[in-house]
Structures are given as C-alpha cells and as structure tokens.
Design a protein around this nucleic acid. Structure first.
Lengths: 108, 108
DNA sequence: GTTATAGGCAACTGTTTGGTTGCATGTCAA
DNA sequence: TTGACATGCAACCAAACAGTTGCCTATAAC
C-alpha cells in the first residue's frame, strides 16, 4: 500500500474537516457536506475525489445521490506502520538529544 | 498545539525520507543528510526548515555545523489526539457501510 | 414530458511549493 | 591571515494546488 496519497490528502485542513464531518455523521451526500461551508460545491467535490483516491472515503451511489463513508483503515495503517516506528524511537531520541547537549556543555 | 504544519510537513516524501534518515541515525548535519540524495543542498535545507517549523526536528549548533535531531513528539500527538478518534470509529464505520449496502440490496 | 435536483467535466486563475543557482556569512585549520 | 568548509539568504522558475465559473448529464418529482 502506498501511503503517499493518504499523507497528501491529510495535509489539507479542508479535507481533514470533511473527514471530521463524516466522523460526526457518516454517509452524507455531496450536497450535505457542502452545507455551511464557504467554498463552492466543485471545490468540495474535488477534495472528496482526493479523499476517495487515498481510500479514506468510500462512496455508494443511490440514485442521483452519492453517499460518502469514512474509511479509517488507511489512517489506522499509518498509525500502525509509520507512526509506531517513531513512537518507539521517542525516548531514544530525547536521550540522544540530552547527551548531545551535555557534551556541548562539556566543551563550553 | 497547531497540527497543521505537522500534517503539511509530513505530506512530502522527501521530508519523510529525511525523518527516516534521522530515525536511522540521529544528530546528523545538513551535509550528512545531503549525502546520496539527488537534490541540491539548498533543497534539503528548505525541507529541514519546514520540519523545524513543524517541531519535528530540533537543531543544535556546534561551531559551523548544524546538528539535526528527530523530535517524534508531534507525531505521537497526532497519533494520540487525531488518529485515535478515527481508530475508535473504525468498527462503527464498517458497520454503517455494511448496513447501508444491505438497505440498498433491499431496494434493488 | 417538463422541470428541478444532484452531481460531473473542463477550462481558467492566483498562489503555493519544490527546486535551482549565485552570492554572502561565519567558523575551523594551516 | 588566508583558504577551505558548512550553512544561510535571495531571486528566480516550473509545476502542482485550491479554488472559481460555465456548461453538461442523469435521476427524481410533478
């Protein structure tokens, strides 16, 4: 699985807001997702396309309505496979930095 | 804490690669981080600035050398405060989608 | 059938971004 | 002190991006 589209999709605040909206109420139509937003329907639609391509949103057509469903799996995979690696390094990094600063002090 | 700079910094593959390099070996200089890369030193330097601004990298000057240290804390915070929310919704979302698809079948 | 509704497609625009190059500055070493 | 080394600053460029507008298609409702 390529995580790059996921990272890129998550980089935009508008798209994260859309995920938040779906998190609050799943299965909304494009029109519903546009309500209360300042940008045009087209802008929202484009954002949703990127979210779909990142597999963060799944769609189901019902007649002329397109229902959008949050798919948290890619987010979970990022947490598992990518963030976990750095989380494990957390304490180590702080220790490294502390040691480096101390060796600086010795030189001063 | 504003997570937006973190998300934006993580959106670029080159910057994630730099974090990987620091994860492998912490406290590298700009010159060291440039080794083996195709892009110019300036390009790497700019990426590092963004990583610093996102607080993902901490720097320590030692003479004319700038040592770069990975700071995994913002990544951990994203995992805790943002991803956790969606992770909790994971099963719920799948159930929602399944129910919706089934109600579609009934209509067909 | 006609009309309103939900959404898609394509062209265009201003801004951001990732990258380059050239030059300037500060630090170590001979 | 002179030169080499490590980095920063500024201007510039092409491509990507977020957003708009106008028009087209398909479904639902009357």
């Amino acid at each position: 699985m390529d995580m790059d589209p996921v990272f890129r999709a998550l980089a935009d605040p508008s798209r994260r807001a859309l995920l938040d909206r779906l998190h609050t109420e799943n299965g909304q139509t494009l029109g519903e997702l546009c309500e209360g937003l300042t940008m045009s329907r087209q802008a929202v639609s484009k954002h949703l396309v990127l979210l779909e391509e990142a597999n963060l949103v799944a769609v189901v057509w019902r007649g002329r309505e397109k229902l959008h469903y949050l798919n948290p799996v890619p987010i979970a995979e990022i947490a598992d496979r990518w963030i976990g690696k750095f989380e494990r390094a957390r304490v180590k990094a702080l220790v490294d930095l502390k040691r480096e600063l101390e060796s600086d002090d010795e030189k001063a």
